[in-house]
Structures are given as structure tokens and as C-alpha cells.
Amino acid sequence: MNGQLDQSLIEQVKQALRTVVDPELGFNIFDLGLIYEVTADTTGTVHVQMTTTTRGCPATGYLQEGACNAVKQISQVVAVEVDLVYDPPWTPEKMSPAAKLHLGMDEGWGQ
């Protein structure tokens, strides 16, 4: 990052990532907890760290590129980099309450 963190742009990036839907779970990748970190600076450079529900999933590349496409739609964004990470691995507990509700995942279910 060259400039200072731009909180307003970070919020816009998060909203943009909410438009990318995981095809298998049918919910957006942000609320599914697949986005681990978003940073954006005042020069318009965005860095996203994300994961997938399963390592090796055939959808991985599409999700990574989908996240990149969605962020590029923001006019202030000059450059975007989306990295895939698997440490820590994704678990269903990372989902937001809305995503859990969508999948019928009650608190305590399957404990």
C-alpha cells in the first residue's frame, strides 16, 4: 500500500463483494466469510485476501476472478489484487447470521 487506508473505499469494496454469489451455497462470498481481509488506500489500490469453502474446488478460479471483476466496477479503484489463502481454513462458523439463516444453520445445530 502506498497511501493511507481509505475506509470509505474499503466499505465500497465490501459492498461490491456482496454482489458475488458462491454458486454452490447460493449466498454472497462476503457474508459466507470467504473474504478474510480487505485493504484499500487513497491511491485506489485494493488488496483482497479470500478463501474458498473447499481447497481444489473447480469454482476457485472463477470466484477469485469474480471478486476481482466486482471490485473493478468501483470507479475509484485503480488497481486490484485478489489473493487466495487457505490458512486458516474456512469453516461454516465464519458465516454471518444472514448466511447461516439462508442455509438453515441454527445455533448449536451439528455441534
Binding site: V20, P23, E24, G26, P58, G66, N69
Partner: peptide, 22 residues
């Protein structure tokens, strides 16, 4: 359906509204 989704909608993910596999 899963492979069909990837083939048809994977390349346009993040560019507009796409359906779910279901």
C-alpha cells in the same frame, strides 16, 4: 448442474447478476 454453471456463468461472475446452481 454444477459443471454447467461453472461453464456458463463462471466466466461472468462479478460482472452482473448470475443464477445459483440450484
Amino acid at each position: 448442474p454444477f459443471l454447467t454453471w461453472l461453464e456458463c456463468y463462471g466466466p461472468v461472475l462479478g460482472k452482473g447478476v448470475t443464477p445459483r446452481v440450484q
